[in-house]
């Protein structure tokens, strides 16, 4: 196995008396595709909030490329190379699609070069994502699938080493899911490790090299997609006894 990009150890997170995550271990190798699944309320989103820094974990450590980032604010994590997309798209509504990408390029990716070059780079990302002809449209007027693409485009513009994709496909049609999957595969080919959180099993199973299952804040299974499908614990978590 290649070098580890992200290492999460004994992570616990409580909200008042409710334990959202308990002693979870998670690691992602460089360029790896990890699927993170679990029933609703199992702690997936809390997990990625802790990884991206939106929430601070109560116990445990998070290391990214050998650096301890447990107490680091989100923007510094973005600078280091952790990008995320949001379950509910959060475009910068007053900006065009192209300008949306300018923000991560200028901040997270530290591109302090000319406007021309930043715009070229933004265009490159849009081309890869397939939003090129939307570049000068206002981001607030995009369709759902294009908003999801913009989320991924903005994450990619931050030039990450690790992308956390939070339900980028929820609510999309089958062909749209395939489109997003192709994008994620393309990103991964460029050497970006991906954590995919998804409810659409077809997508997770096709995409992931390794799947991690959470239930009620605890890791109940980990393995290749094939192993997970036949795991009795996972079946129980999803379907009950």
């Amino acid at each position: 196995m290649s070098e580890v990009v992200l290492q999460v150890n004994n992570l616990s997170k409580r909200f008042g008396g409710f334990t959202a995550l308990r002693n979870v271990e998670l690691h992602v190798g460089a360029g790896e595709r990890l699927g993170l699944i679990g029933p609703n309320g199992s702690g997936k989103t809390t997990m990625i909030n802790c990884i991206s820094g939106a929430l601070f974990n109560d116990e445990g450590t998070i290391t990214f490329e050998g650096r301890d980032i447990t107490r680091m604010p989100p923007h510094q994590r973005a600078n280091l190379g952790i990008a995320r997309s949001f379950q509910i798209p959060k475009p910068f509504r007053s900006m065009t699609v192209l300008e949306n990408l300018r923000v991560p390029l200028e901040y997270a990716a530290h591109a302090r070069t000319s406007r021309r070059r930043i715009m070229d780079e933004a265009m490159e990302v849009l081309e890869l994502i397939g939003l090129k002809d939307r570049a000068n449209q206002n981001s607030a007027g995009l369709t759902q699938v294009d908003m999801r693409k913009l989320e991924l485009a903005r994450a990619l513009a931050a030039k990450p080493r690790l992308l956390v994709s939070d339900e980028a496909m929820a609510g999309l049609s089958s062909s749209e899911v395939d489109e997003i999957l192709e994008i994620l595969f393309a990103l991964n080919k460029r050497g970006v490790a991906v954590i995919m959180i998804e409810h659409i099993m077809r997508a997770v199973m096709r995409f992931s090299e390794r799947v991690l299952v959470l239930d009620a804040g605890e890791k109940i299974a980990e393995g290749t997609p094939k192993e997970i499908v036949h795991n009795p614990d996972v079946e129980r978590a999803y379907l009950g006894e």
Binding site: S52, A54, P74, H75, A83, F86, F92, E106, Y107
Partner: peptide, 18 residues
């Protein structure tokens, strides 16, 4: 542009490195 990003969505801005 950083300020505009904050105005539009502060959480997303932070995650974009602002």
């Amino acid at each position: 542009r950083g300020l505009a990003a904050i105005r539009d969505d502060e959480v997303a801005a932070e995650c974009a490195g602002v």
